[in-house]
Design a protein around this nucleic acid. Sequence first.
DNA 1: GAAAATTTTTAGTGGTCACTACATATGTCT
DNA 2: AGACATATGTAGTGACCACTAAAAATTTTC
Lengths: 175, 175
Amino acid sequence: MTLFHRRGYDAVGVAELAEAIGVNPPSLYAAFGSKKGLFERALERYQESGGGFVARTLAEEGNLAELIGRVFLRAAETYSAADSLPGCLVLDSTRNCSDPEIRAVTDALRAEGREHIRRRIAREFPRAAEVLTDYVLVTLSGLSAAARDGMDPAALRRSAQIAADGFAAQLGGKG
Amino acid sequence: MTLFHRRGYDAVGVAELAEAIGVNPPSLYAAFGSKKGLFERALERYQESGGGFVARTLAEEGNLAELIGRVFLRAAETYSAADSLPGCLVLDSTRNCSDPEIRAVTDALRAEGREHIRRRIAREFPRAAEVLTDYVLVTLSGLSAAARDGMDPAALRRSAQIAADGFAAQLGGKG
DNA sequence: GAAAATTTTTAGTGGTCACTACATATGTCT
DNA sequence: AGACATATGTAGTGACCACTAAAAATTTTC
């Protein structure tokens, strides 16, 4: 999981993955079937560990502006955590990936995440749900990309706060 | 340039690039020295054609909020133009690239762009320049990434508008 | 303890990568 | 025309890719 996160799907080789796990390539194929199978397993682990913070945050108590603000701030923290790796595995590990099947895997996860966000927004602002959801996705993608480009945690957090303020202001106008 | 933009630096091969230009690989090496040399030339062309819109927009007349709003909207249009390719060549073509020298090339261009933005913001809001610049970078990265993930032009433009409103609101608070 | 099933290791499969040595064709100048 | 510089095409370099067949070691079962 760490290797996929750090270097992206294409750039990491099966031999390297096998060595990181501590087995030889054939054992890896026996256990996961293919590099794709291992990647899917890594994505599951990621969602269970820290990557699933969006869905978890949206299930908390609070009004919409608070929740989205929390999502942005947690994204900034998660994507630039010192003990972790920059950016989001789902959003960024298959960028410029040459295998369309692999892209489809992360595309599906992204669509799932989008639907979570859209439904929560629609509960309070059904008419503006699509627009606001797109804005949230753009912001999360931006936070992940900026973290990957080396932006430091404090700066990322401040940017997330500005985006959260912007989101809240939109609700004020539409509500 | 088109191939690098569509598929990313690593995923496109020299043989393919040579065929697209209409020559054989040795001629390509005679003209550009290496794949890296060709990529650098492609980046220059990109900045001259459509990719340099940030610097050009910041040189226009208008107050800061107007200019940044224009930058966001032009980013949304440029990154999702129907006759072009999704996203930004500088921001996204070396994501998950395995060659650190190549990453360094786009990193330098990004730093240059950041400095353009920071200087223009500092002219009117020197104290908040760093914070606001980071927010602009996060937003541009997000617009490019979302375009690459297939967000449609209208949705991207609406998200850019929300981000522009958020930026203007920050100026109101700090001004 | 021997046979069978399972796992691990070794060693390779064909394919593609960036890149290049060398032969061939082309153009230029006298 | 003939000598020379330049550009192109052919063909191949070793290295790495995902993946796997078969041998060796291990564990399980009777």
